[in-house]
Amino acid sequence: MEPIRMKYEVRSDDFSVAGEASGKIKRTLKDLGLDASVVRNVAIAVYEGEINMVIHANGGYIEVEINPDKIKIVLKDSGPGIPDVEKAMQAGFSTAPENIRALGFGAGMGLPNIKKYSDEMYIDTELGVGTTITLGFNI
């Protein structure tokens, strides 16, 4: 079965459009009739990823691949990279600047939430080059 592929650009520094990609992905999954809990998990994880890209990485793009048994999502940016992945995975650890926190973002729950709501998560990051997070969701 040919997987369904979609690609979305996440623009930098624009909170007003953050959530657009996860919203579109969510609509697609709902149209497919997927279980509400899968739809929710993907929507939450991708939204966190989108916000991260806006805050830390000057945007990036999101690739989605839907297979009959699995959804694969790649969040790719050319941002600064994550210096200490282990630390970044800790709940509450945040490097977001004050102006971002004032908006209610940057609470240090981005990566932990992505992990919580996905079935698989791989982080590939290189300082000065960028970060690629690959997520898997079982259907």
Partner: peptide, 21 residues
């Protein structure tokens, strides 16, 4: 009301969605 769903099963829904895309 499942009118928004493309099909009753995932495989058919995926095929239809592929065509739509």
């Amino acid at each position: 009301n499942n009118i928004m769903r493309l099909a009753d099963n995932l495989k058919d829904a995926m095929r239809i969605m592929g065509e739509i895309n």
